[in-house]
Design a protein around this nucleic acid. Structure first.
Lengths: 343, 343
DNA sequence: GACGGGAATGGGAACGTTCACAGACGCTTG
DNA sequence: CAAGCGTCTGTGAACGTTCCCATTCCCGTC
């Protein structure tokens, strides 16, 4: 078994000979079948089956200038990939959506400056046709460089600049503000009146928009929404615990808490438990994401479901459109309130 | 900004002209620099910097027959990727290790038969140079097909056939048996005498080897290790809960429990809590993996750390060796006992 | 029956690299 | 000084595909 030679695979030439047609015809058949007679198509089909032909993507890419592959680029430090379940769900969805188009996904991370350089060089050299960009933070230098180089880029989540304004990048995102408004309204409808929030970092769209939704829902209900009711976390479990503890100290009478991510919410639950508060009796808790963390312990979290399947499939759809020459577009998808035990 | 033309990138020819040498010299410089005079090397280096040249991998691959990329292949149903944190850690490690060699990683899944066909066709067509295979189950048809086609494959974890014997695939794994023996010895040293176990599925190496380690440690200590002390889970949280509940019914007097994965252990803790058992006072619990799940709740789990960083870097090392023509080898890495609250 | 036009086909050229080979050069050795 | 050898260099060929153009064929129309 040692020197197991890999035989030279059949080429388009072999198929053409087998089918009794020219390379050109086979190539046309492979690329949509336009201007190929039914008889020729049948012959080619049979020849492909017989020879076991598979197109050589390198040769194709060399001449078309397209690689037929797409990068999934994570511009957060790599650890994030594992702390935050959302990245995983997105990665799964994109892999699946791309597989349907027979497009391979290259996984790349750009957490450090060195990685960033490597990735930018690789991508701008044309080794991928487009980039699915995932990053929760703002002012991403990679995105700018790629855009400037004319590489099709679709961001997952609303890409914002340091001022919180939307950057002109094609993107797909859940309607964070509306989702937050919805779950806070739910808390209000349960009769809660002192509703605090653990927001995300102010330099992330989730941090900004979910906080805005919270404010709006409280304003609607004529309830207080002052800054003393807001603490910021970093989307980690520990950050959620700290922020909730801070709020408990500051607002001992709070009877509900909206946390901007499920993972932080789990941390917040720990803080509430330690402080002797019962959930949901003393404090109702709402999360965001409907990530695995939502049901990874008791009580299960009432939360806002982000439509990850649709987000990932839309990201792929928009990216392929961009690659095909369409104009950048933004897609905002509705969220869904998921009621469980915590509220 | 609409019709943003991507300029034709510089080729090796441009570099050669700029440096005043021939294509051949530039190519030799790029591929190790053998037989290139220092003067020529300097000129080429400068020319590359000036032109911003990046090698066109497609053209290179076309002639070398190598793609310069590697697939990370998950042969479990995709959902597994998200339920089981180990896959994530492995994925991160492999991405990082490959990045150091400037080798892109293609993420592929082969959960369904259709996906399997697609992947096998893609890989055997030579579109990747090798495969990092991750699968916890046995009798993997993909692995066999790839091996038969002469594709370099390295498995993460011990690849076993239906009889539990090691299959002849290069692989890298933690020493599951030894790790299990170690943590069970620890339980024994705490004075526990009725030590049950939630094992993994019997068709996985983790299921077989960790169970064997449990048996051996108990035999050493002269403690009972009968089948009534064994329940099987499926590596999911819910499975762990069910199995632990079953054991509680069957062996009410158990004072320690070794669970073959952290995730299942978290489920088992839920079952113990519901049954009113205190951990670790009434029942000491040991896990396996040292995954994020271990510290994702209270009590934090005493567990067996798998050396994921080393596993992934060794997988990459072995795979690159295989690609370079070396013989398949197996690497078994030691584990480490991590003491926390649960035991 | 000549003509126009669309569908189908074949084959040369090109994509950007590596490989193999031939040759030039400089040094050591007989 | 010739021969031999290792180092360095340039050039033509090849990799397998798509693109482009020229050509043929068929059908409908004037």
């Amino acid at each position: 078994m040692s020197g197991s030679e890999r035989r030279r695979p059949p080429t388009i030439h072999d198929v053409a000979r087998e089918a009794g047609v020219s390379r050109g015809t086979v190539s046309r058949f492979l690329n949509g079948g336009h201007n190929v007679s039914p008889a020729a198509a049948d012959a080619v089909r049979a020849a492909i089956r017989k020879t076991g032909y598979v197109v050589n993507r390198h040769a194709r890419s060399l001449i078309t200038g397209r690689s037929g592959s797409v990068a999934f680029l994570l511009t957060e430090p790599q650890e994030k990939l594992f702390e935050d379940p959302n990245f995983n769900v997105l990665l799964r969805g994109c892999t699946r959506a791309l597989a349907a188009h027979d497009i391979p996904l290259l996984l790349m991370t750009a957490g450090t400056p060195a990685e960033r350089r490597r990735v930018v060089r690789y991508v701008t050299a044309g080794h991928v046709d487009g980039v699915l960009l995932v990053s929760s933070h703002t002012g991403d230098p990679v995105a700018e460089q790629l855009l400037k180089a004319g590489v099709p880029v679709v961001a997952g989540g609303r890409p914002v600049d340091r001022g919180g304004r939307t950057v002109r990048i094609a993107h797909v995102t859940a309607d964070d503000r509306d989702g937050a408004r919805g779950i806070v309204r739910h808390l209000v409808s349960l009769g809660r009146r002192r509703i605090a929030t653990v927001a995300g970092p102010p330099d992330t769209p989730g941090g900004v928009d979910r906080l805005a939704g919270w404010r709006e829902a409280l304003a609607e209900a004529g309830l207080p929404a002052g800054d003393e009711l807001v603490a910021h976390g970093d989307y980690s479990r520990a950050g959620g615990r700290r922020a909730a503890a801070e709020l408990l100290e500051r607002v001992p009478g709070m009877d509900a808490l909206f946390v901007a991510s499920d993972l932080m919410a789990r941390g917040a639950l720990t803080a509430l438990e330690r402080a002797g508060r019962r959930v949901p009796d003393d404090v109702a808790v709402g999360g965001f994401d409907d990530s695995p963390a939502a049901v990874a312990g008791l009580p299960e979290l009432t939360t806002v479901r982000q439509p990850w399947d649709r987000i990932s499939s839309e990201m792929v759809r928009v990216l392929l459109g961009l690659i095909g020459g369409e104009e950048p577009s933004a897609v905002i998808l509705p969220t869904e309130l998921v009621r469980r035990q915590s509220a």
